[in-house]
Nucleic acid binder design. Structure first.
Lengths: 130, 130, 130, 130
DNA sequence: GTGGTCTAGACCACA
DNA sequence: GTGGTCTAGACCACG
């Protein structure tokens, strides 16, 4: 289901956030779909329920999923990107960092753009959200 | 000199590594140039010397700079991009993550590629190292 | 009829209590009026009957409505505001919390008072119950 | 220091968030001040460190406090209210609820406004943030 | 059944 | 020293 690397240095809960967002992006999870319950996912991934909980809450803060009390957690029907200057700044910073790394690995402009396009295709990024 | 954000969630030593690599990339630091001493930089940036030290060690490990005992620390003359599958894997992972974020911020394919090209130009990334 | 938001973080049964009290306040429900039966309301709002039941019990506890066995549930004819130090304490606590939030949203004294007066007018709060 | 009621039904971490915001509002905590460390506050309030942590992280998300890695947590120097339609909606909802309660406790328009003004004075709410 | 909160205790990275 | 993450296990409110 979701691909978690226990040995990775990036926190498990962040990995899960990322995995779920990707799953939604590529359509494996559709708007309105029910996510596995905290306990269920925890036992399947052999991860502590609190950790799953943290991921779900983070996704809820980002308005990607929503919880209906007593019923479970669901992919939002109406996700819409909101202008967020802070996040945009962070995005650029991350991208800078990544591009510098790419350069030091010997990739030139064209190979980088090619890689970006390839990854976008894998992820299913097309013409925006709206 | 170097742009450090104490509040950022990315560790200071990593920010500094990043800043130095960028300075080399855009030519502000040339191969063979001497870097400021640990103490000097620490006092100028009002950062703990141990933190500067950690950055220099990391850059040395990456063969970007080298220390000549008693003389100081210098930008390597002969940086060679090496094939590094592990780093390549990390790079792709970071890029995936960044692209997913970009999508959720509402950017479409074209705007992302545009942003990538713009940042590469700012950084001075051209036709590769070799 | 009643406005329930399944996604809200406040429990459904509490939302319903609130809605019914508001309906009485603005006169949509008059003293002596019959409330819909639990089953009826449950099916109309697509909410679990237990939840409706809980709301009615809470309102009965507060002496806002009363149940006549075999006949149904009715808005009390003779609601009397009672001095209740515990509830008064809670009220102040809630108000404090709300006012702090308002401040952190950038509202100043005058805008807050204006908002309070506006809401009271909408709700139909005038010169007290007695 | 901070007033926490272990028996209250509102979560401890939320109470603490509220208490800290009030302390800043009335000037007991000034912009730039260091907050007690997680462990310190935990032992003083005899509350689990994780709970304190949760409060601090919530406040950080709200840009009320910020953490400097390895140094501690500090009241933000530059808090500024941001337009947030979602929060504004919530605020009005809370206020409605509170006003309805006030009415059912027998308070009329004038007594409510008086109470609001009194609480704002106690809290130190004046002419807005800027 | 669901998610939300809390405790106890552990380990880690950062400065 | 600081905060950040994770586990284990418990209890609660809600529907």
């Amino acid at each position: 289901m979701f691909n978690i690397d226990q040995r990775s240095s990036t926190p498990i809960y962040q990995q899960l956030v990322q995995e779920i967002k990707e799953a939604i992006l590529r359509g494996a999870l559709q708007p309105g779909d029910k996510l596995p319950s905290v306990r269920d996912l925890a036992s399947r991934l052999t991860i502590n329920p609190n950790t799953i909980q943290k991921s779900y809450q983070e996704l809820e803060r980002q308005k990607v999923i929503e919880t209906l009390r007593g019923k479970g957690t669901f992919v939002c029907l109406d996700y819409q990107a909101r202008e967020d200057k802070e996040k945009m700044r962070e995005l650029k910073e991350n991208l800078r960092k990544t591009l510098v790394e790419a350069h030091y690995l010997g990739l030139d402009q064209e190979r980088i753009v090619k890689l970006v396009r390839q990854l976008m295709q894998e992820l299913g990024i097309g013409e925006g959200l709206e």
